[in-house]
Design a protein around this nucleic acid. Sequence first.
DNA 1: ACCTGAACACCGTTCAAGT
DNA 2: ACCTGAACACCGTTCAAGT
Lengths: 217, 217
Amino acid sequence: MPPRRTPVSRRDRPAKPPLSRDGVVAVALGILREEGLERVTMRRLASELDTGPASLYVYVQNVAELHGALLDALLADFPLDASDPVDLLVDYTTLLMEYPSLARSVLTLWPSGPNYLSLIDAILGLLRAAGTPSRQAAWGVDVLLQHATASAAEHGTRRESGEAEGGWEGLRAAVRDAPNTEYPHIAAHRDELVSGAGEERLRWAFAALLRGIAATS
Amino acid sequence: MPPRRTPVSRRDRPAKPPLSRDGVVAVALGILREEGLERVTMRRLASELDTGPASLYVYVQNVAELHGALLDALLADFPLDASDPVDLLVDYTTLLMEYPSLARSVLTLWPSGPNYLSLIDAILGLLRAAGTPSRQAAWGVDVLLQHATASAAEHGTRRESGEAEGGWEGLRAAVRDAPNTEYPHIAAHRDELVSGAGEERLRWAFAALLRGIAATS
DNA sequence: ACCTGAACACCGTTCAAGT
DNA sequence: ACCTGAACACCGTTCAAGT
C-alpha cells in the first residue's frame, strides 16, 4: 500500500493551515484594516481561509460575535496610560473613527472582551482619581463610552458609501434654509450649529460629559 | 373601435392607487409599526404597493433616505411642549426605543426633515430659557440627540433577533467574573456598574449632560 | 415622466452528509 | 469533532425597455 500523500490540488497556495478561532479573527482583522467592515463577510472570510462559509460557524456563533472579537483585537494595542480622561476618550474615539461600521455594530453589541474590560477599568480609575463618587463613575463610564462609539459611527472618516457625508451636508443645508418664523431658535444659533472642527467639538463634548458626571448625583 | 377598458387582471385587489412619495412612506410606516424596520425592505414595500422594487426609486433615492423619512413621519405626532428638557429628551428616547433598528440607522443618517428640525428647535429653546450660552446650546443639542439615539439603539425594547439582550447579559457576566487583580477598578464598582433601571439611568444621564453642557464653555 | 421585468451582485445561516 | 456542498431565504440597486 503506497503511503498516503497530501493532496496537491491547491498548487499555488501554501499548505492550508488548520482553522482556529484566533486564525479566523486574525484574517478578519486584516480585511477590516485594509478594506473595511463591509468586506468582512462570512463568505469572503471563508474564501480567504480556503473553505466554505459553513465552516466558520465552528469558531464563531454569528457575525455579531465576530464583530465583538474584532473590537477586542483592535484594542489589544491601544495604550491605556493616558492621565487625562479626555485624552484617553479622544484617542479611543479616533481609533474607532477608522472603522465607522464597526462602531455602528459595536453600539448594539455590549462588548465584553478582556481588552474592552481593561478600557472600562482604566476610565473608572481616572474618574476615581478625579474624585468622582463611585456610583456616578460607574454610570458615567457607560455614557462616555457610548458617546465615543456613537461619535465614531456618526462621523467616521472612512468614505464607506459616502452616505454619512451627504447626510451632514443635508443637515447643514436644512439648518441654513430653515425659515426664521418656524424655527426661531435654530435661526438664533444658525452659525454655531454647524461650527467647529470635529476634534474641537469632540474634546468639548467629553469635557462637558465629565463635568456633568462629576457634578450630578 | 371598442372603448379601452381598464384591465381586470388583479381581481381581488382594490384599484391600484397611483404611487407617490407620501404613499410609499405611509405604507413603510405601517410595516415599521407592525413588524419593525427589518421588514421594511424595498421588495416588501413594493409588493405591498403592488409593483416591483425598481418602481420605488422614482420616489426615494435609497433606503437611507427612506429611513430618514420614517423618522420624520414618526415625529409628526410627537409633542414638543414639555417645559423640562429632561422630560422632552426622555420622551423622545422612549419613542425611539420602540424602533431600535431605526435608531441605529438614524445614527448615521443626519436626519434633516421638518419635524426633526422642530425637535432641535424645541431643545434649543429650552436650553436658551435655562440660560445656556448660545454656542454651548448649539453644540450641546447635538450631544443630547446623539445620546438619545444611541441609547435607543442600544437598549431598544423590541426583541429584534434578541442579540441586544444576549450582549447585555454577556457584559454583566464579564463584569461579575472580572478578576480583581487585573481589573481593580471594575472590582471596586462591580455592583454599581450593572445597577439601576433603564429609565433611572437615562434620566440621570440627560441631567448630567445638561449640567455639563451648561457649565463647559 | 413614470413604471417595470429581469438581472447583477451579493448576503447570513442551516443542515444533511461526509471524514 | 470538525468540516463541507448545497441549499434556503432573502437583500439593494441598476438598466434597458416599455407606456
